[in-house]
């Protein structure tokens, strides 16, 4: 399975939420990079990064998931994921472990969860003492433009 229902999951933390992406979708994890602003872009787009000659769009997950803004002093990490739209970097607070997950712990997100999160999450793994939200990176990127243009107006 390639949606991290079963398999290995690269985890990271954004504003206290534990999120994960199927490890096969992750190209690499890098430290904070200088980026080029893109005036006029959807506000979730923080900028463009040159990743060894590859142009990578950086999305701020805090803004995308409508969480509280990051303290400017804390530099985010880049989780570079492969999507239908080429490589995209997700800006996160902290990187966690790569953990093995199993179908038994998986469940679709309840209806009561905010649509902002529900639309970009394939489901929840009920880990010991913690919930791991599995991101659908393609849905996340595809809907970012539209979602945020609405959010801006």
């Amino acid at each position: 399975m390639s949606d991290a229902i079963q398999g290995r999951c690269c985890t990271f933390v954004v504003d206290g939420l534990l999120l994960g992406v199927d490890v096969l979708k992750v190209q690499e994890v890098i430290r904070y990079q200088e980026m080029t602003r893109v005036p006029g872009a959807p506000h979730v787009v923080t900028g463009l990064i040159n990743l060894r000659g590859q142009l990578v769009t950086a999305l701020d997950l805090r803004k995308r998931l409508e969480l509280s803004p990051r303290n400017p002093a804390d530099l985010p990490m880049n989780v570079v994921v492969r999507t239908d739209d080429g490589a995209t970097s997700l800006l996160v607070d902290d990187i966690g472990d790569v953990i093995a997950v199993d179908r038994d712990t998986f469940e679709r997100p309840p209806e009561t969860v905010d649509a902002v999160i529900r639309d970009v999450v394939t489901g929840v793994h009920k880990l010991e003492g913690r919930l791991l939200l599995v991101l659908d990176v393609d849905a996340l990127v595809a809907s970012s433009g539209a979602a945020c243009r609405d959010g801006e107006t």
Binding site: A41, N50, D85, S144
Partner: peptide
């Protein structure tokens, strides 16, 4: 070329990587 997210912006034709390694639109 820019990714899909930025392709819709009318003011940009693409991006370039400059001599110092940074990106310019």
């Amino acid at each position: 070329p820019l990714g899909k997210l930025l392709k819709g912006l009318p003011c940009y034709a693409g991006a370039a990587i400059m001599g110092d390694g940074r990106v310019a639109l």
